[in-house]
Design a protein around this nucleic acid. Structure first.
Lengths: 214, 214
DNA sequence: AGATAATTTGACCGATTGGTAAACATTACA
DNA sequence: TGTAATGTTTACCAATCGGTCAAATTATCT
């Protein structure tokens, strides 16, 4: 009889690596749209082009698939923030952070939506990661921003809410893509809206709206 | 035999109004967390404190419940934007728009998440409303903003992306509530974070970050 | 009070759910 | 080439899904 993946001790086969990749790719397609409970193994198997028992040969449960995806996404998703450099120039650091996050929203929208789905459901699978590694990383970068503010390099502002606002504005173009397309209309449905967004957001965060006071 | 709701011609009973309200309230609880496909009628019936056939007596299908909820939310959700006044002062209009949207994120987080869930799934039920009424309203307000920019009252910027950024930053506090709480930690888990967010966001959008140019 | 309409429920339906068992097919390696 | 490990499939399971039905109960109105 076949030995389930988790029970094996030896290293993975070529076939295992390939098939697991195919399955996770399909699972990302499905989970990112319908969330955990709204997705079915049959659906994932169908997208992956294999039978349901075959999928379950590589991942013993639906949760194992989801967990595997979440872990992978959570890591890569924080890379732009990790790259945020305390020794860099504040303006260019913020500019490139925005740009990187926008590129991720453009190139990895499914990963963004998977994450958003998890958030909407109250993060039942990753609450520990949020309170642990994520909070630590944000705390660290918030301190950097606060230092910049104290040195007079940027205006005083709440660094946490600054980070939240960069997250939300950039991820919006992945998570609410349908709405963005619908509002912008046919003509802006190309990749151009990401460049427009980058231009606008960089200006917003660096210069502000420039509203004149009375 | 009982006559299903949709087939009736006479006006609604007192019991009908009450029970439909109870059901929609329960449905909002469930749909906003698990999305359409991830939610079950049994679950909604359970939250509503009634039997499944009883729920289906008032709403003939699961989709009827969802549609009823979406319609209601879609309308109230756009009210702050409708209140956006062309004749008002740009600064105070943007300030109060941000404040109103933040209040909605604080007071109606379930409605925000229901909407977000729908967006993540590609808005299969409301794509027409997005392309129609929503786009029209945004077009109208975008024109107002553009007028302000031409008059020199605010800096030139893409009005559509400005609206997107206000939407995303404010709704973030409802949709990503778990993450916000986790990052801010125990001490900021009260309602205070909404005031902090309002202060920060108003400053961001009105004054900008104030980063000094070389 | 009695008749009628509105409401509620338990039993049930076929389809789908996540997951299993075992037979069968393929691969890797001696 | 033989054989043991790995991979795949068909058939199936109990539980749950959205939804129906008829009978029982309750509210409404004359």
């Amino acid at each position: 009889m076949a030995i389930p993946r988790a029970a094996r001790t030896q290293r993975r086969t070529r076939i295992q690596e390939e098939k697991e990749e195919v399955i996770l790719e399909a699972a990302l397609d499905v989970f990112s749209v319908h969330g955990f409970r709204g997705s079915t193994i049959d659906q994932i198997a169908d997208v992956a082009g294999m039978s349901k028992p075959n999928v379950l040969y590589y991942f013993r449960t639906k949760e194992a698939m989801h967990r595997s995806l979440i872990d992978r996404v959570l890591f890569t998703w924080l890379e732009p923030l990790r790259a945020f450099d305390a020794n860099g120039n504040p303006e260019s650091e913020i500019r490139s952070y925005i740009r990187r996050k926008l590129e991720m929203a453009r190139d990895f929208p499914r990963e963004s939506r998977l994450f958003a789905n998890e958030m909407l459901q109250g993060a039942p699978h990753i609450e520990d990661e949020l309170r642990g590694p994520l909070k630590s990383l944000v705390d660290e970068k918030a301190e950097v921003i606060r230092t910049w503010a104290k040195a007079g390099k940027i205006a005083k502002c709440d660094p946490y809410h600054l980070i939240f606002s960069i997250w939300s504005t950039t991820q919006h173009y992945a998570d609410f893509d349908v709405q963005v397309r619908a509002v912008l209309g046919q003509e802006h449905s190309g990749e151009g809206r990401f460049e427009d967004a980058a231009r606008y957001l960089e200006k917003l965060f660096v210069d502000g709206l420039g509203i004149r006071r009375p």
